[in-house]
Every structure is written in structure tokens, then in C-alpha cells.
Design a protein around this nucleic acid. Structure first.
Lengths: 165, 165
DNA sequence: TACAATATGTTATATGATAACATAACACTT
DNA sequence: AAGTGTTATGTTATCATATAACATATTGTA
């Protein structure tokens, strides 16, 4: 992780603080606990700004605390909790995790993964959702979960490439 | 694997034989070799009828040959070949592999995964594809790959459930 | 305080995937 | 057929991802 990776604009810092506040509210309503560990994992994901794997999170947890070792189950349990309450997404095509910017929305997001800068953007999209529902109903299929992950190059990287690539 | 899992109807046997023939034709046209190993892996996937993980495939390879051991690279290289020529899909949400019933079609399929019977069905769907393309273009995102995996209960299992569930 | 429920720690191990290098099979030329 | 380059497979080791099983600690509540 180079220094530049950790640079956050003030607006992003503010957004991340709000995301934590929202997460706390959601947990309170649901009568579940956003413990220090769980909050720390969510904060790390928010601050990093790109999807992180479980073992990368373990390393960050070790680096950002006085523990000498964080074992896999520790981070996986925190991730399971955050997934359960939709506070994060799992990106299956990367085996990595990223914050859910809208935990209360029922339908799962389309994730746009830039292979160039590594950023994963959520693209809430009703049209795709409708198309999937229609497709499923044609097969008489009862949808429970859906994984929609698109990889490619994001708008920012494409523009940058045109200008000085 | 219970005995019933290996039962195949005659029509499925015939379809699988045709799938192998098609695979051979595709490889011939592309001037690449569907070696014994690669064909065996594809056959195992076709015959099993449900997605299989790499290590399950390794076990089946060992069971269905006189080798004493099949190492991971052996099966992964065969899988990489089959993926490259679109003869199989990787299902990321299961870390498993399943035959591609239409290797020549360019756009990637929607996969409907039944959590009840384990069968993964391909649902070629143009509407979803168009919705995704539209969504991506709104984000000025250049699509390279896409993963669309829907989990739930398939029509057959839902009907069975209604009748004697 | 005592108890039940929830959360975390700890050790071991299963599962998924690849790197690096050695050997074998194939296909093409002479 | 022998030699040569290419492709495929074998082999060993290791990395990466994830979970099982059981012990301890923390929390909320009677």
C-alpha cells in the first residue's frame, strides 16, 4: 500500500463517517451489535476504497491494533456479520469484500469492477433487475440471491488513458 | 455421490455425446487439441450434471483411471483450456465448473443455480445483456467480462415441493 | 451474582489455485 | 527415420481462501 492509496479527500472521509453512523443505526434497529471489531473491519473497507480480501484485512487489522496476530476466523466472522446485515458485499470474482453503500435497498447491486484502478463501483439498476426477474420467471425460478459483477475499465481510467496514454 | 446421482436418462446420454462431438469440432476448427485428459474432464462435467469443484474433479479423475494420484495443476490446466475455448463456465459463487451448452455464443450466459437440487441451468438472455450494456454505458464503463449468477429454487424443485412437500 | 446468549480467541485443517521446473508426446522439417 | 521446436503433462512445493471445533471472554438480563 503506497502512501497515495491512503489519501482520502475530505468529502470521502465525511462520507465514510456517515456510512459508519448509518451502520450503527441499522444495527441498533435490528438489535444486533456493531462491535469494535466489526466496526473496525467496516472502517478499513471504507477507508481503503477498493475491495479487500480477507487476508489483506487480517494484515490491516494487525497493523492497526496492538494485537500480534489476527486469525482467519476473527475476520471471517466479522465479514459474515457485515454480509448478513448487508453492510458489505462479497465480490465473488475477486474473492474480496467492499462496503455496501445502500444496505437498506433490497435488490442487490450490479458491481462494476475496474481492472485498471481496482475500484469497484456499485451501480443500482432497476432495468437489469427487471430483466433478471423476467428471465427467472420464464424459467419458473425462485430468485434468492444474485451475483452481477462486470469487469472492465471504468470511465475515469478510460478518460485518463485518452488524455495521456 | 449416491447411485441416483449417476443415473442418466438416455436422452441426456445422447446430448452429452453430442456435446463432446461439438467440442471436438470446435477444437479442430481452432487447430487446438482436445486431448484425452481434457476430454475426460469435460465428460465428467457433462455426466455429473451439476457443477463440480476442481478437487472433486481430481477425485473423479483418480477414480475413473488407473492413475494413483492426480495433482491440482493437471486438472487446473485442463479447466483453463476448456474455459479458454468456452467449452465450460466457471461459477464464481460456487468455485465450481459446469459445461457450456453453447460455446460459440459470444455473450456470457446467465446461470440459474438451484440451491435445492444443485443443478445449474444456463439461461441465454438478450434482455439482460442489453440492460447491462446500457447500464455500463451510463457509467462510461468498458465491459470486458461479466459474471451473472442467480441462486434460488428451480422450477422442478418448486413443483416437487408443492406436490409432496 | 448467576445465568444464558453472544462474541471472540486459538488451533488445526479443508478447499481452491498457482509457481517452477522436469519429462513426455506431438508435429513438422529435413 | 532422426532431429528439433512446440505443446502437454507430471511433480513438488507453496500460496490463498475459508471453515470446523472447541476454549475463553464479554454482554445483557433475571
Amino acid at each position: 500500500m503506497t502512501p497515495v492509496d491512503t489519501v482520502q479527500t475530505n468529502s470521502r472521509k465525511q462520507a465514510n463517517i456517515k456510512a459508519i453512523q448509518r451502520a450503527k443505526q441499522i444495527c441498533e434497529k435490528r438489535n444486533v451489535r456493531l462491535t469494535a471489531l466489526r466496526e473496525q473491519v467496516l472502517t478499513l473497507l471504507l477507508d481503503y476504497g477498493k475491495p479487500l480480501g480477507a487476508y489483506a484485512l487480517m494484515d490491516l487489522l494487525e497493523a492497526n491494533s496492538d494485537r500480534d496476530r489476527v486469525a482467519p476466523p476473527t475476520v471471517y466472522r466479522a465479514l459474515d456479520f457485515l454480509l448478513k446485515y448487508r453492510l458489505i458485499h462479497k465480490i465473488h470474482s475477486l474473492n474480496a469484500y467492499t462496503p455496501n453503500s445502500n444496505p437498506l435497498r433490497e435488490d442487490s447491486s450490479v458491481i462494476l469492477i475496474c481492472t485498471h484502478c481496482g475500484i469497484a463501483e456499485e451501480a443500482p439498476n432497476n432495468t437489469i433487475q427487471q430483466a433478471i426477474n423476467l428471465c427467472a420467471s420464464q424459467y419458473r425460478f425462485g430468485v434468492e440471491k444474485q451475483v452481477i459483477e462486470i469487469s472492465g475499465k471504468c470511465g475515469t481510467c478510460r478518460t485518463a488513458e485518452k488524455n495521456h496514454g
